[in-house]
Each structure stands twice: as structure tokens, then as C-alpha cells.
């Protein structure tokens, strides 16, 4: 069977791509998508360890992460709609009313 490092490295790559996306993108929706990407990368690591240790707990964590992701998507998209209605934009740089 494959060594576990393959999966962990794949996870690290996808996580980094997601992180860079969160940083560089300006469209809020895309940022949310990139966050999903990062969560998925973490999920992959969880599943890999769960599988190699033969322990179901890791898989359960993935389950919880998915729940959180769903909740985050719902609230995040609600925020997106609220922001869009108020400011007619999805650019995070324009949602800067909170600054001094």
C-alpha cells in the first residue's frame, strides 16, 4: 500500500493552494470557496491518519468538519447576500466600514 506521506503531502498542497486563494482573491464568494478547499485538505489528512491507525475517530472528525463547513457556508453566504444588498459589491476590500 501507499505510504501515508503521499496523502499528507497532497493535503498540504491543496491546503496551501486554498490559503493562497483566500489571500489573493477579492471576491468574497471565491474566498469562501477557497476556505472549503482548505477544510477539504484537512479532511484528507484526517481520513489518511484514521485509515493508517485503523481508528474511526478521525473519520468522525471529518464528519464534524463537514457539519461546520455546511454551517459556515450557510452563514457565510447569508453574509454575502447582506453585504451585496447593502454595498452592491462582493469585493472584500470595499467592505471596510469597520476601519477607523
Amino acid at each position: 500500500m501507499l505510504p501515508i506521506t503521499n496523502f499528507i503531502l497532497l493535503s498540504a498542497v491543496i491546503f496551501t493552494i486554498g490559503a493562497v486563494g483566500v489571500f489573493f482573491k477579492r471576491n468574497i464568494i471565491t474566498i469562501l470557496l477557497c476556505i472549503e478547499l482548505m477544510l477539504n485538505a484537512a479532511n484528507l489528512a484526517f481520513v489518511a491518519f484514521a485509515s493508517y491507525f485503523g481508528d474511526t475517530t478521525g473519520q468522525l472528525f471529518v464528519f464534524i468538519v463537514m457539519t461546520v463547513a455546511a454551517a459556515e457556508a450557510a452563514v457565510g453566504l447569508g453574509l454575502v447576500i447582506a453585504i451585496f444588498r447593502n454595498r452592491e459589491t462582493l469585493n472584500v476590500d470595499e467592505a471596510n466600514i469597520l476601519k477607523l
Partner: peptide, 15 residues
């Protein structure tokens, strides 16, 4: 030394 980690025989049952 993750490379040395052997796949668990119970992996299939865990999932």
C-alpha cells in the same frame, strides 16, 4: 518518520 507507518489491517473495518 511517517514513512515507516504501516497501514492498519483494520482500516477497512474502521470506515
Amino acid at each position: 518518520n511517517l514513512d515507516t507507518l504501516a497501514p492498519s489491517p483494520t482500516a477497512a473495518a474502521a470506515g
